[in-house]
Design a protein around this nucleic acid. Sequence first.
DNA 1: CTACTATTTGATCCA
DNA 2: CAAATAGTAG
Length: 743
Amino acid sequence: MTHSDEAAVQHSPHVPLQILAGPGSGKTKVLTSRIAYLIIQHRIAPSSICAVTFTNKAANEMRVRLTKLIGKEATSRLRMGTFHSLCARFLRMHANLAGLESNFTICDAQESQKIIAKLLKPFKNFLEDRNISLREGSVAWRISQAKSKGQGPDDVVAEAVKEKGMNGTIQKTPENLKDTDPTTYVIVEVFREYRITLLRSNSLDFDDLLLYGVKLFGTHKKVSMWCKHILVDEFQDTNTMQYELMTHIAAEHHCVTIVGDPDQSIYAWRSADVTNLKNMIRDFPATEQIFLEQNYRSTASILSLSLAIISEDKERIKKSLHTAHPKGPVPTQLCLVDEMKEAEFIATEIKRLVAVSGGMLTWSDFAILMRFTALSREIETALQRESIPHKVLGGHKFFERMEVKDILAYLQLVDNGSFLPAFNRCINNPPRSIGEKSVSQILQRAEKDKISALDLVERIHDGKVPDIKPPLKRKVATFISTIRTVRNLAKKRVSAAALIRTLLDLLNYEEHLKKTQDDWQNRWENVQELINFASKEHETIELPVPPEPKAGKENDPVASQLEADGFAVIDNNQKKKEAAEPSTDQAAETPLRLFLQASMLSTDTETKDKEDGEEKNKDKVVLSTCHSAKGLEWPVVIVPATENGVFPHIRSEDEAEERRLLYVACTRAQSLLYLLTTVERMVGGARKARDLSFFVTRAIKAKRDLITAMLPEATLENRKIMAGVLSRPLPPEAEIEKRLEEL
DNA sequence: CTACTATTTGATCCA
DNA sequence: CAAATAGTAG
Ligand SMILES: [Mg+2]
């Protein structure tokens, strides 16, 4: 550790701290060490430390690191996770204070969009008459943008009205919006109904988690009383709501540590705002800053090119960043004929590097970082053809699979009978001859009778209320009995994995897949993988509020009164709640509920395959978007399509952010970096001529030797450098010759 | 009314 | 290339 690293770790816990540093400077490691330092040196109880990471996967990685430093027990007590998952946890814990039911379901983006699509339909003619094309995607987007700024429908109206009309047009008012701004009018109307739908469904979308979280922590001080120190990683990519949340959680002790790098802010499109760095200094005037300037990750030539790229951002505040590593091979810029040749090159080059490195590099040392996922298609097939094992990183893809969503929907419905998206999905799946018309009848009557759709169907089934036109009673018999069976098991706190098995059995789901899907084998495997995920999740469940052991408190004079008080308040509150309604903490956190929450928020879906050869399974080339590569590093990074139209993306509105994204991609590399382009590429159905991104051409204008068209040479010198950068042993020369021959 | 097939459309990045 | 939509048979 350098002097400044140490200063950052050991900085006084009572003085708010910003650790600002470039890529590869060990920011996250410093943050992790600081947590350990707070616990060991300052005797702060782990349960009064809140650590916020950017993804839940990052939280898991931090947990692994901390387990080594402070042990499993202490690590499990930390309040750790993304802002979203922290909100979800505390909202369930204090559902009554937040005005929620503790069994609320998290509505993911896909389901949100489906709801919005339904709500948009009645406006179809209205829009067509005005020649406006408005798809549910853009409506969902606008609604989410508003929510992530804390705005409601009326605020959207207010904002639209504020815009001065163009010359000659009528000034907009809330009343005439329908005529003066029909698009916004429709968005706002859908927005209103969307909120009502979620409310009726006892459901929160991702934005709601933050909104309700801010409200909860902001209005009930006791909810955040436990927090003696909050630490936030990747702070440059927090949005306004998240920042507010941080200040509320820190309200009692004002002890905050953040790490971040403005140059790596790549989520402004999701309303992240780097000015939160300034806001923090405004709101915590005692804030001090520490800069880390040592890069431990990359060779000098990778760093030089990266810095040349980011330096083209004229708004940027200059930062120094240097590496102790040698220069190393100059990054390669190659132009291939088309995307097929590009993919082919990637596959053969990976094979070549594994050989010439004498096995120092294995598959998992390679990452292919793309601007968007669609670019992966050709590359995946090329890797398959060369039988190079690979995996697609990031995203939520697994949980978006049809078969996985089917199962999740049943479980959601079991946990929360009001959750309409799940009801709609399950009621006729597997097919029960309950079509569109029947469903809309059910929904309408349920709304009129002010009960949930599932409730209504259950009552019809029990013969307590009259049936609908095409009789439903007999069609839903198995549906209802399935739901009831699983529901009873769930109440007995049966594990999610067991619930899924029962469900599959009752639904005859395997048969259903065989009948309806030709690739049912793959899909059935995914279902099995969901069970794996459930059992894995069950093992690693961290209890939401582990009671502090008595002994720990007594040994811990600094972990003082306030903390004890904080817990006392929460505990009392729980007891009061128990009296008022039967939703105890225990009931609020059934295994099923924890599993569902993890499924909706998790990005960590690399389920380990079976018992055999775990190491082998992990050794795979990584395909990832640049966004999901945030915070990670690989010995070799290949960036395909470093072309104008991709970097910056043709539809992007923020050129500087696109540049930062390329910067982030380049700085993931430790020892080798490739920027690839093609002569022409299929873009939106047509072949188009491509050229090298101006982010690169401008960066190398003054210094052409920042990049080369040559492949990195397989010299001993280069192997030594690589071994040094990666801290790996140098392979024997014989090994290299052997592998080259095999190739 | 529902189930199934054929066609058209329209595609950044994410918790 | 997937999902929404239209159209047809049962
Ligand atoms: Mg980091």
